[in-house]
Simulated assay, not measured.
Amino acid sequence: MNIRIELTYKTPKGTEATFRSDEMYIGEAILIGEDLEKTGRIHSISFIDNYDTSLTLKEMKQFMKGVQTEPHNITVYFDGGFNIETYQSGLGCAIYYHQNRKSFRLRKNALIYELNTNNEAEYAALHLAMQELEFLGVRNIPITIVGDSQVVINQLNGEWPCMEEELTKWADRVEHKLKGLGITPNYHLISRKENKEADRLASQALKGVEMSSTTET
């Protein structure tokens, strides 16, 4: 969960100024807020979440205690591959998250047969990742979704129209899953090179190499 800080600073002579920070991870925001309060010159400070809800430092700490035991600070990488000769699709996803003050990486792939294009495979890979989030118990938080598919990323973030019927169905499945879990997605398009982990998982699936693991990072 990302937070931005809004504060009013007061000098010893009484001059005041208001500042707003960039977005940062909630844990970092709490540390900075605590440090700022130690100066004794903060007239007011508030923490604004992705829904524009304003929280006090005390409320932030209470919220953080509850969040620590649940998966949070989640980034999802996904990729899909399609073999036009066999009509097999390889799906791959890597999910990075924090839980109980530790960092984890979940890797999952799958081989499926019912798709017809590479773009469908890309959507199916993202849907696979959403299923894994559901299994993890992820609920009602923002997450970052990263992939190298311009079609999937740009269609889901509303920049490109979705004209093909099958892709529209897949987009609806992904958005329905996100809505059901209460997840707010933040989409990022990256290069294929930057997405090599998910790409490797998809390629392994096409070769019949199954992967399903969760490790501490």
Rank of each mutant, 00 (worst) to 15 (best):
D148L: 08
F135A: 13
P161C: 02
E59P: 09
N83P: 09
L167N: 02
I145W: 08
C93P: 06
D148Q: 09
G137K: 06
E134T: 10
A125G: 03
T53L: 11
E159W: 13
Q150G: 01
V152H: 07
Q131L: 14
N157P: 04
H127W: 14
K65W: 10
T69N: 15
L167E: 01
L106S: 02
A110L: 14
N100C: 05
P142T: 00
L91A: 06
A125H: 05
I84E: 12
V76T: 01
V76A: 01
L115R: 02
H127E: 10
V152Q: 06
M130I: 11
T69I: 12
V152T: 07
C93S: 04
G66E: 08
F104Q: 08
Y97K: 00
S54H: 15
K61D: 04
V76Y: 03
N100A: 07
L136H: 03
G92C: 00
E70L: 11
E159N: 12
K65G: 11
K65I: 10
I112E: 07
S149L: 02
E132T: 01
Y96F: 15
L133Y: 06
T69F: 10
N50V: 10
E164R: 14
H127L: 13
I141K: 06
K65C: 09
A121G: 05
T168S: 15
E159A: 13
V151N: 10
H127S: 11
K108A: 06
M60V: 05
R139D: 03
K108P: 07
Y77H: 12
Q155L: 09
Q68C: 12
L136M: 07
N157D: 09
V67W: 14
I153S: 00
A124T: 03
I112W: 11
I145K: 05
V138R: 00
Q99V: 04
E114H: 15
T144E: 13
M163Y: 14
S103R: 14
A129S: 07
V152A: 08
Q99A: 05
S103K: 15
V67A: 13
D52P: 12
I143Q: 00
Y87N: 13
N118T: 08
S149A: 02
L91V: 04
N154V: 05
N157G: 00
S54G: 08
R139V: 06
N100L: 07
K108H: 09
M163A: 13
N50I: 09
G147P: 03
S149G: 01
G81Y: 13
L156A: 02
W160F: 15
E164W: 10
M64L: 15
D52H: 12
Q62A: 12
G137C: 04
Q131T: 14
Y87D: 10
G147M: 00
N116Y: 15
L106D: 03
A125D: 03
M64K: 14
N109E: 03
K58T: 15
M64Q: 11
